[in-house]
Design a protein around this nucleic acid. Structure first.
Length: 876
DNA sequence: TCAATGACTTGATCTTACTTTG
DNA sequence: CAAAGTAAGATCAAGTCATTGA
């Protein structure tokens, strides 16, 4: 049972005791912030009010006892929520489980496994390439570390914050060129280890392998998550697959390393290739079928029939052949590209419902009504309560109303009739019979079918979002200066199409209009773009879907880059640590900034314009965002991307602490903490250390490294459901590091109450059973139930069994509850989609016989099709 | 050197489809 | 079977980073 997993192990102990060195990342982690909503704006404010949840894992430690049963700890949700859990966590030191250890084989195994190629026989000339880069052998880790690794000691920080904090880890990336990777030394281990320290504890060290193991366990402690998993368990996947398999399609070759692939590219035919025929409706991704057995996770493509082939003509530009050329410069992204353009939202249909102005109905032209309706529809959102929103809206609407319109101010407008009309429409839609719905759906599908696919180098690929954004009111996040502005309707004459030379130009769907421009630029991947109506300097693009080879390739490159960072991370840490005390202010700032990015997984922090929400990242931190708390703790509190609050209290190394104090000296709260720095300087510096390295690589590295370590540390004992719990737990750790939040659902409290009630009920039942048991032992009949009914006479054994069952139910419910509380503000999806190398997950699934579909949904399976053949021994 | 531009990734949330529950 | 919950998918905002051009 899951329980076990969760049970406490002593994680903490491990951490603490062993600590030899190392960085620890902060322990705490919690994110409290969530308050994201708009509320805060400028940096200065710190919102507090939040519920302050804490990081879960951490908490668990303490929370444990909630259920008394078997020692399992369940973290009570509450506990977690409470702020400081404190130190007292107990853990037994015992944990001794052995971790899986990293992959054992030091040797290289060549990855080449691709099993069968995915190619279908059918394709004739198409490409294929399958090899995976042999280059990397699986790196196995060796258990040892390089000596260097150990070095980092200096850096280690300890963090433990009181309240929350997250831990990050750092690392850097590397380019492929550089040295061969050494295995990761232990040091590399991600911070994660550190971080969580739930409460106060923290520390851990890398090096010992031992330490690592425990981590995983630690996390579990919370005991969470049981519920979902179970549900997960069921499988359903079959259906789709089967179908898909049937169809044939072209399969796309698998990606290999970039370089190669590029070159390999099939030749193109120049002109338009003919479209692939038939089946195509099925996306490539779907074609993949998963094998059912866990191990067989890999996908296989079905055989494709159609063949498109292209001849190569090209070789022309392939200049850059360097093998590894990243897609960079000059990079050609495709040779032939065929698609059908974009689809437009239907024209506005006036509804004729009149709004009131000073209590009286007003006649509006369709154009005026359209904009009024956009506002009316948002009446129940909190955008309406923002003055900025109302002001921007009214300014834009006024332009459409005209100067002399009766409507002169928003305050006297009553949009209720329109709002109600809209609600009624919604209701109507909901009430439609399923047949009706089906018919409507089919119609829509038919209409959109042709836009869904593009043929890239002869392979049919899914297009991402091919719908032009409909007009509406801008829904900026946080305190965006432009919220509420009218996002005007986009017309064909606003759109630039990019398509292969010679391919048929998509027909403009609006009669009488034409595209703004048609280009044939094969150095970019977009199929179309238009100017963002809100920010005239920005564009909106139509790209291929994530399941496409083009996207898959770059995704793979991203992870490879992060993975290679492993080889350089020690050096990088050493270097920045040395510069914490540099006399050169710029160097010192770079060092500290890099440290924060590494340790806390902060984003780079580009400069922002005044017409954007006031949010910050590392390079743009303000003095007021970082509060030094002697002797060596820093309290971060700022609004980051999407105006999501980042609040973290972290212990840092003394030199960092001192440097921060120095950077703050003589500045005002709103001044930049790093006045000598911006992202381009920072990245330029990183690139000197390792070609291709940029700030964001650290996030990817730390996230993936953390997952890899946590999953590998876990001794496998459980069944599928338990393993899934383990995975989710690891995933959650990563989400916490990255500060991926979600707003608490409106019904959360209600749901919690409901759970509480159920638990209470069960407890009552339990009490009654115990009384009955007592009486039964004495030969007395059971008391009447609360409902007054008489109960059957049961043998003590039977009662005991019932009691045990009830205990289990209560436990499970408590666990569900704490998981729910725990995850109420943590979003796991983002990291899964963007930061976790899917090969880690795939390899782990293979090792633990967990079907991939339990972890990745259909779209992720498609998106990560390039990772499915990885060896079970793969380590990040 | 740096601001503007351009392309692409990351991210929260809204919407819809599907499940579970009462 | 409807209401409630949830997960998947869609949407589109908001970042990162490279390149361009003056």
């Amino acid at each position: 049972m899951a329980v076990n997993a969760c049970s406490n192990r002593n994680l903490m102990e491990d951490y603490e005791h062993h600590q030899p060195v190392v960085f620890k990342r902060s322990s705490t982690t919690s994110r409290q912030s969530q308050s994201n909503t708009e509320s805060y704006k400028s940096s200065s404010q710190k919102p507090d009010g939040q519920p302050g949840r804490q990081a879960s894992d951490v908490c668990s430690a303490n929370g444990g006892s909630a259920s008394g049963l078997n020692g399992t700890t369940i973290s009570s949700s509450k506990a977690s929520s409470e702020k400081s859990p404190l130190p007292g966590m107990r853990t037994s030191a015992s944990s001794s489980e052995v971790p899986l250890s990293r992959s054992p084989s030091p040797t290289v195994t060549s990855p080449m496994s691709d099993h069968g190629n995915r190619m279908s026989p059918g394709l004739a000339g198409t490409i294929v390439k399958e090899e995976k880069s042999s280059a990397e052998p699986s790196k196995t880790a060796n258990g040892d570390s390089d000596s260097e690794d150990e070095v980092p000691l200096s850096m280690r920080t300890k963090s433990r914050s009181v309240n929350s904090s997250k831990t990050p880890q750092g690392s850097n990336s590397t380019s492929r060129l550089s040295a061969p990777k050494q295995e990761e030394s232990d040091d590399d281990k991600p911070l994660s280890n550190f971080k969580r320290a739930t409460n106060g504890a923290s520390s851990s060290n890398y090096s010992d392998s031992e330490d690592e193991k425990p981590l995983a366990k630690r996390r579990q402690q919370n005991g969470l998550a049981p519920t979902k998993k179970s549900s997960v368990g069921s499988d359903k996947r079959p259906s789709t697959d089967s179908k898909s398999s049937v169809q044939s399609l072209i399969k796309r070759p698998k990606l290999s390393n970039a370089s190669t692939s590029r070159n390999l590219k099939p030749a193109s035919v120049k002109a338009e290739p003919k479209v692939v025929e038939d089946n195509d409706h099925i996306p490539v991704s779907q074609r993949i079928k998963l094998s059912g057995s866990s191990t067989s996770v890999g996908k296989k493509y079905s055989k494709g029939t159609s063949s498109v082939k292209k001849v190569d003509k090209k070789s022309k530009k392939i200049e850059k052949t360097s093998k590894y050329e990243p897609s960079s410069s000059g990079g050609q992204k495709w040779t032939t590209l065929v698609h059908n353009g974009v689809i437009f939202p239907p024209p506005y249909q006036p509804h004729g419902v009149k709004m009131l102005y000073k209590g009286k109905p007003v006649d509006l032209t369709p154009g005026q009504e359209e904009v009024a309706t956009m506002y009316a529809v948002m009446l129940d959102t909190d955008y309406i309560s923002k003055p900025q929103f109302r002001e921007n809206f009214f300014n834009d609407w006024k332009k459409i109303l005209g100067k002399n319109h009766v409507i002169q101010n928003l305050e006297d407008c009553d949009f209720t009739p329109m709002y109600e009309w809209h609600q009624a429409e919604k209701e109507k839609k909901k009430q439609r019979s399923s047949d009706e719905k089906k018919a409507i759906n089919e119609e829509k599908m038919k209409l959109e079918e042709k836009y869904k696919w593009a043929i890239v180098d002869g392979v049919k690929e899914k297009v991402g979002s091919f719908r032009v954004e409909p007009p509406g009111l801008f829904r900026g996040r946080g305190e965006h200066p432009k919220v509420g502005k009218l996002k005007k309707r986009i017309r064909p004459s606003d759109i630039t199409i990019n398509i292969g030379k010679g391919a048929p130009i998509p027909e403009c769907p609006v009669p009488g209009e034409r595209w703004k421009e048609v280009r044939n630029d094969n150095t970019v991947t977009w199929l179309a773009y238009w100017m963002d109506p809100i920010n005239s300097k920005e564009f909106k693009y139509v790209f291929l879907a994530p399941s496409s080879a083009l996207k898959g390739q770059s995704d793979k490159e991203k992870y490879e880059k992060a993975r290679k960072l492993t080889d350089h991370i020690d050096k990088i840490r050493e270097a920045y640590t040395k510069n914490f005390t540099s006399k050169d202010a710029t160097k010192q700032q770079i060092a500290v900034a890099t440290y924060l990015i590494d340790k806390l997984a902060l984003r780079a922090g580009n400069e922002k314009d005044d017409d954007e929400a006031d949010t910050v990242g590392c390079c743009t931190l303000k003095v007021e965002n970082v509060e030094p708390v002697p002797p060596n703790t820093l309290e971060f509190d700022f609004l980051g991307k999407d105006s999501i609050r980042y609040h973290n209290v972290v212990e840092v190394e003394l030199p960092v602490f001192e440097a921060i104090q120095k950077f703050r000296k003589g500045k005002k709260g709103g001044d930049n903490l790093f006045d000598m720095l911006d992202t381009s300087k920072l990245n330029a510096h990183l690139k000197e250390l390792v070609p291709g390295l940029t700030a964001k690589v650290f996030r990817t590295y730390n996230a993936s490294k953390t997952l890899d370590d946590l999953l590998s540390a876990e001794t496998n004992v459980g069944d599928v459901a338990e393993n899934i719990v383990v995975y989710q737990h690891a995933n959650k750790e990563v989400a916490i590091i990255c500060n991926h939040q979600r707003t608490v659902s409106k019904s959360h409290d209600q749901q919690m109450e409901r759970l509480d009630e159920k638990i209470k009920e069960l407890n009552n039942v339990l009490e009654e059973l115990e009384v009955d048991l007592d009486r039964a032992k004495k030969g007395k009949p059971p008391l009447k139930g609360t409902d007054g009914k008489t109960k059957r006479n049961l043998a003590p054994e039977a009662l005991e069994k019932k009691i045990a069952q009830t205990h289990l139910r209560i436990e499970k419910m408590e666990r569900d509850k704490s998981t729910k509380e725990d995850l109420k503000t943590v979003a796991l999806g983002t990291s899964k989609i963007n930061y976790l190398d899917p090969r880690i997950t795939v390899a782990w699934c293979k090792r633990h016989e967990v079907p991939m579909e339990k972890i990745f949904n259909k779209s992720l399976l498609a998106k990560f099709s390039w990772a499915m053949d990885v060896e079970p021994s793969f380590r990040f």
